[in-house]
Write a protein that binds this DNA or RNA. Sequence first.
DNA 1: CTGATTTTGATAATCATTATCAATTAAATT
DNA 2: AATTTAATTGATAATGATTATCAAAATCAG
Lengths: 143, 143
Amino acid sequence: MVWKRISQKLEENEYRLTPQREVILQVMIDNRGKHLSADEVYIEARGKSSNIGIATVYRTLEKLASIEVLYKTIFEGGKYRYELSLGETHQHHHIICLQCGNISEVEEDLLHNLEIHLEKKGYKILDHELKFYGYCPQCNSKK
Amino acid sequence: MVWKRISQKLEENEYRLTPQREVILQVMIDNRGKHLSADEVYIEARGKSSNIGIATVYRTLEKLASIEVLYKTIFEGGKYRYELSLGETHQHHHIICLQCGNISEVEEDLLHNLEIHLEKKGYKILDHELKFYGYCPQCNSKK
DNA sequence: CTGATTTTGATAATCATTATCAATTAAATT
DNA sequence: AATTTAATTGATAATGATTATCAAAATCAG
C-alpha cells in the first residue's frame, strides 16, 4: 500500500530504487508518524544493512523530500527532520512536548478558515505548518 | 515606549545595557516585524558602531531571547532568526512568501479553539507557532 | 559485452553556532 | 579615588550538521 505509492513516485521521477534507498525507505516506514533526523536514520539503517554511508542518507532523504515522498521540516534544535508523507493533503501540524520531546500530529479543519481569510486578503497559500509547544498528556499528568 | 519595556526586562534580569547590546537592540527595533539572522544583525550593527564581534551578537541575541525581549525561531534554511517580541501574547504566526521571502504575521483568535481542543485531550499547551507558505499579495498579483 | 550514466562512500569543505580564554570594562568595596 | 570582584567582550578554536568532491562500483541502454 505504502510501497505502491512510493514506487510510483520514484518511477515518475526516474529515480532508482537501490538497496540503500530501500533500506532508508523501510526505516521511514517503520517509523511512520515519527520525525527522524539524518543521523537517526543513518543509525537505524546501519542496523539493517551495515553498508550505507552517511552521505547517502543525506542525499536520499533530500531527494525523497524533493519528490514529496518525505516531508522535511526543522524544529528548535536546529536540525532537519523527515517524516513519511502520506496522501495528498499537507498535515504538518505538530505538538511538541517540551518535556519528553515527543512529537505528534494535530487535525486540520480549523486551520482551513484561516487560510480562506488570508486568501481574501490577496495571499496565495500553498502550504502551512503549525507547531504547538507544551506537555503531552503523559508528561502533563506526571507534574 | 519600546525601550521602556526593554529596560525593565533587562533590569529584572540584572542584565547590563552595554554599548554593544544597545546597538544590537537598536537594530532589532529598527527592523521591527522582520526576522533577522545573527549575521544580518551583525552586519547592520557593524554599520552603526564598528566594534562588535560576531560572538557578542550571538550571545546577546540568545540572552535577549531567554528573557523574552526577542522571539527566536527557525525557518527552512536552517538558521535561527530573531524578532522583537512586543507585549505579552505569543504572536508567532508567520506567512512566508515563497517568492520574495517576505515574512509577515497572522492574527490569533481562531487558533485558540484548537488549543482548547488539545487541552481537553490532556495536553498542556504553552506556546505555538504557525507558518503559512505561499505568495504575498504583491508577488501573487505579479503572476 | 561495452560504453555511458547513476549512485555510492569516504572524506574534505562549508556554514552556523558554541566554547574558550585572556583582556577590557564596569560595579562594588574599601 | 584606588582596589578588588564580577560581568562582558572579541578573537579564535571547536563543534555539529550539512553539502561538495571525486574516484570506484553498480546499473542501464544499445
